[in-house]
Amino acid sequence: MKQYLLICICLSGFYSIKAQNHADSLFASEDYLNAAVEYERLAFEEKKDIASLLLKKAYCYKAIGDYREAFRTVDRISSVQNDSLNEIVSYEKVILAALSEEWAKAEYGLLMWDLKIKKENTALEQVRFLSLISLGKINEAKTHLRQNFSKLGINSVEANQFFRKKWKLKNPEKAYNLSLILPGLGQMYAGKFWKGAFSGTVQLGIIGFTGYHLYHGYFFTGGMTGAALFYTFYLGGARYARQLAEQYNEQLKSTIKQKFLAIPKK
């Protein structure tokens, strides 16, 4: 998934580094860790062009696939006077946050991009869509796709046909409560019909066991073993339904993101 994301949207964003110092030469010779430390040393000792040097350091980590460290580095850049550099830094903050799967930070980066840079960028619009999906904002993602399909680099037909009706996130608390109302119903709501049916049948069996024993005068057996078993399965089943709903949501988000990345972009 991460590699796919990288191929789709990120390779175009590499900042060209002309060899101006030893660090640049190390970068050019693909000695990235050495180059990263050299850029940091230059930033520390010379106290100028810090944004540019940290950006280059971030590229070192990006090149070796350590996106978290790359994001951590680029996130240290607080103010940039140069407009074009500011644009690149803002762009990288979003892309690297996405590659680190820090979706809330990617969303924050996009907000900053909208406020400060105010330029259209296909790759960032794609990240915006992926962020919305990852953060569970399916309806917002749907609206974004339909309204901004050209910015996302896809055609209107694909944009309109992309979302399936059944792509709806499940509410884990609803699944839990449904299983409390009727055992097994929460599992069915979470998309696992047979698991729900099995859970419902087991709990019906326990109720039968309890009723049978009470009816035949085995009050301790019916009242205690029956009630204890029912209580355990009843609450356990409801918790399991909540867990299934959460798993369903993660699976759905992953499916939508993969299908989106698989669409040929302009």
């Binding site: 085995y218 009050f219 301790f220 057996t221 205690m224 073993t225 204890a228």
Partner: peptide
């Protein structure tokens, strides 16, 4: 206490050789 009471109940109603008493 729960298991003891259930075993006692099974003993009184079904006797010492009953499967219910043996289980509880």
């Amino acid at each position: 206490a729960i298991f003891a009471l259930q075993a006692l109940e099974a003993y009184r109603k079904d006797g010492v050789k009953s499967p219910r008493f043996i289980i509880f």
